[in-house]
Design a protein around this nucleic acid. Sequence first.
DNA 1: TCAATAAATATCGTGCACGATTAAATCGTG
DNA 2: CACGATTTAATCGTGCACGATATTTATTGA
Lengths: 156, 156
Amino acid sequence: MADQTDSSDDIVLNDFLCFGLYAGNHAMNRVYQPLLKALGLTYPQYLVMVMLWAHDDQSVGELGRKLYLESNTLTPMLKRLEALGYVSRGRDPQDERQVRIRLTKQGKAMQTEAACIPPEIIEATGMSIEELKGLVTKIDSLRSNLSDWAQERSAS
Amino acid sequence: MADQTDSSDDIVLNDFLCFGLYAGNHAMNRVYQPLLKALGLTYPQYLVMVMLWAHDDQSVGELGRKLYLESNTLTPMLKRLEALGYVSRGRDPQDERQVRIRLTKQGKAMQTEAACIPPEIIEATGMSIEELKGLVTKIDSLRSNLSDWAQERSAS
DNA sequence: TCAATAAATATCGTGCACGATTAAATCGTG
DNA sequence: CACGATTTAATCGTGCACGATATTTATTGA
């Protein structure tokens, strides 16, 4: 009985954890929203742009693996980004199955406009860089564990 | 110049933080999904049920304040829970503006079925109770800071 | 070679999230 | 009492997230 805590405690803790992520994500969204409105981007669209700024010319699948999203979510989103004039979409001549996403001139130019956002977010968190680094590590480790568990689950 | 770290570091850190919450939330969703499918609930619906199990008979507004959601999200969700037979919706006779949400017999009964979920989630996190407690505290503190910042922003 | 399989993307339907707006009930103050 | 302001839900439109399925291209193996 030393290796297991009180189960009612587990319930509460779990609820707070799942809810914490849920609410934390929403709160982050709401901080980003006014900042992104100036760029005409939504939060998920911004994440796509961040990925492309880091590494231009990626396939839908590559973006999906990094963002943990699939084509059913990405395709419509990328079409919107294309309609906004920030990316181009085109089949890869070497493998016509793939669609390659590239930044347009306008999309590249946005990176400098967006540079003002991260410092604002850091400030909004009200945490020190050290605290944030620790939190990022913990959350990523949590995400990784959860992903592994879901993976094993679906395999069985 | 001692009070500000390298700004390029900030950019990376910020991107990882926002993305961490985003991806962590998704991962949590994906762990819950197969468990909740047995109950016929979605993740946000489950959160509503958790709130009602803790305290039955709440108004839409009360639920919204706890879940950080508003009627535009809650009303359709609560109607679905009503259609599923888990809650009832009715105007408060004392204040006809309010709609009170109550668990049905079936909704109350589900609590015992759902009791098996939290321990599974705890296991899926692959973390110790102490680690989780620390993480929950940190994330909630982050959420609180972000909310305050968004609040001040919109006020100005 | 060519049919079966696999891989990559797209489509469709449902449910959440949220800004903006609307409608109804209540409250407050003259 | 009356009427404007406030509170509470609901409605509408758009975009994300995702399960299930379809479509197209590439690969593999008799």
